[in-house]
Nucleic acid binder design. Structure first.
Lengths: 339, 339
DNA sequence: TTCGCCAATGCAAGCGCTTACATCTTGCGA
DNA sequence: TCGCAAGATGTAAGCGCTTGCATTGGCGAA
């Protein structure tokens, strides 16, 4: 890679000092129009771009924030990120994305990597991580916003929704539809507070409505894992009449399992999801699921982060609402006689 | 954000010079074991991390490469990126991701933004972009690899596959299955060589096999757009007996349109896709589509980029193979009598 | 005319790091 | 015992940029 022109090259060619060039770039009002134009012409001619490192060194910030998401292969994180990125870009801030593959160790590594790159702030997904990670973050005093979950009493600023409540509402709806033998295909709960909260929400709601506790099977984040888990649940006796899924991807796996077993949805088995990704509407029948405001979440996170980066004051967490989208995969429970 | 400890802080506390600390971090062999341990202890104690800007300034590289993809909301790019990132990370290189939203202007902006951040290399999707963009890249002499398309005679190093040929093969299969009234729901071809090549491939193959030219409708990258386009095609007279789609997402839209119109796949209408994302197997019936080796593509891109970054020699483009996955959405063409 | 002020610009230090070169030990052979 | 090479460490310049302060040149007021 060719060595790039520097401020000094521009200055020399324009016959001014480096200070003036710098001012043309950063505070143009302080420079006489004539000089400004001359400098700008040289900048264009040389194709000059400021050196990031030099700049970061001098102004002691990078205008960069980092986000660590579990995986990019999940449309829902991607979409939230996209909103975050767009909003940040409008403020001249660049977003650095890293993935942890749902692994706390990897997440910790990525946090260090991003911090080493001098990010001015950090977006992390969920709340569940080791105490030492939080200590580390606190010590660096870097602005952090937790996305995707919101729980009363969390010390860190978060932008998200109440996974427990949303899952409970869905479970309540399932029971209200007449189901009593309810099972759940959950995401992996270890190190994942969202998945865990959803399981707990379902458990709590079923108990509150006098339904027997659900059989819960955990599955990794993939259609295939959902299919396997659902096959287990559907072939046991007695089989559940409804399966609540921890997310839409798992629900898609349940659809495939049902298809393989010759079961019709929702006649033979009801299915619900969580997230409301595009996939939900493509499924046949369309999936009844919990709609999550990913876009608004990404946008709100951007605002919070920028505020946090400007003034290190405490910023209030933001709770967003979820909403059940009824689409047809949840039918009435089995009639008494059929039981 | 608290001001971080510097090399000098570490040096002072360890009672050595900054040079020694730097050596402990970068070339530990040059330092006596005893000193090394002492310095490392202080590094840990202080939680010291090297300042990225300072480092970039001194060594004149960032160990960072940038990638600009059209959108993160498409699982297929995400997956390729993930592979790219993993491979790069193994070599200590960080990946910066930006999105262009299929817009050449935005892509150009992102290129500048990434270069301004001092990326050592660039991954771009596809080949279609303005001549001045290429001139700019050439002038900066930054290593670039083009992903997702591969065409003989392209001057830039690319890692991809022949979109034209793959689409032609699919079209040939459709004709061989007995279809003659073939339509296509294509991606937007303006500024997108992959989408354009796929359309051309289909056209060429149909012509070569004596089938009438296809009716082609372009649609943005979304299920909804695919649905709209398909509705147009399916309600015209005579309706096509098969719809070839420019990608799987559009195919999903076609499924919904067909469902809405009461048409069964593949009995009433055959559908094919392109990309082979997870979605393809979830659809009912599972989608016959062109499988694209996204993972291998991402990995190969990483290798090429690293080689290019080390030695500015020319590196050969890599052509990967695609493969048709027959799954059930492509049925036999209508019988003579039905026509 | 002289003075003071303001706008425009230059000067130079310093941000944190690496590294060529200088300096200082140390241990060994003569 | 001395000299010297090799190993360990320090010194300081310089990477490209920003910015507080100094300097310059006009211009209006006294």
């Amino acid at each position: 890679m060719k060595s790039q022109p520097t401020l000094e090259d521009v200055a020399r060619l324009a016959g001014v000092s480096t200070a003036t060039v710098s001012r043309v770039l950063n505070t143009p009002d302080l420079v006489r129009a004539e000089t400004r134009d001359r400098v700008r012409a040289v900048v264009d001619q040389l194709g000059y771009t400021p050196h990031f490192g030099g700049r970061a060194l001098a102004i002691r910030r990078t205008n960069t924030v980092g986000a660590i998401i579990p995986t990019m292969e999940n449309a829902i994180f991607a979409r939230g990120l996209q909103a975050l990125q767009t909003r940040l870009a409008a403020r001249g801030v660049t977003l650095l994305v890293a993935t942890s593959d749902f692994d706390p160790i990897q997440e910790e590594e990525q946090i260090r990597a991003l911090l080493a790159r001098g990010v001015d702030g950090l977006v992390l997904i969920g709340e569940a991580r080791g105490a030492d990670t939080y200590t580390f973050l606190a010590r660096r005093e870097v602005p952090v916003v937790l996305l995707w979950s919101h729980r009363e009493g969390c010390l860190w600023t978060s932008v998200g929704f109440d996974n427990h409540r949303a899952a409970a509402e869905m479970a309540a709806l399932v029971v209200a539809s007449g189901h009593r033998r309810v099972a759940m295909v959950a995401g992996v709960t270890a190190g994942n507070d969202r998945a865990a909260a959803r399981v707990e929400g379902v458990r709590a709601a079923l108990a509150a409505h006098g339904a027997p506790p659900p059989r819960v099977v955990e599955a990794a984040y993939s259609i295939e894992a959902g299919r396997t888990a659902a096959t287990t649940l559907l072939t046991q006796d007695p089989a559940p009449s409804a399966i609540i899924c921890g997310n839409d991807v798992l629900a898609a796996g349940v659809y495939i399992a049902a298809r393989d077993l010759g079961l019709r949805i929702p006649d033979d088995i009801s299915v619900t999801g969580f997230d409301d990704i595009d996939l939900a509407t493509v499924l046949d029948p369309p999936l009844t699921t919990v709609h999550v405001p990913h876009r608004r979440m990404g946008q709100a996170a951007a605002e919070v982060l920028l505020r946090l980066a400007d003034a290190p004051a405490h910023v209030e967490s933001i709770a967003l609402e979820t909403e059940i989208r009824e689409r047809g995969s949840l039918g009435p429970g089995p009639s008494e006689t059929a039981q």
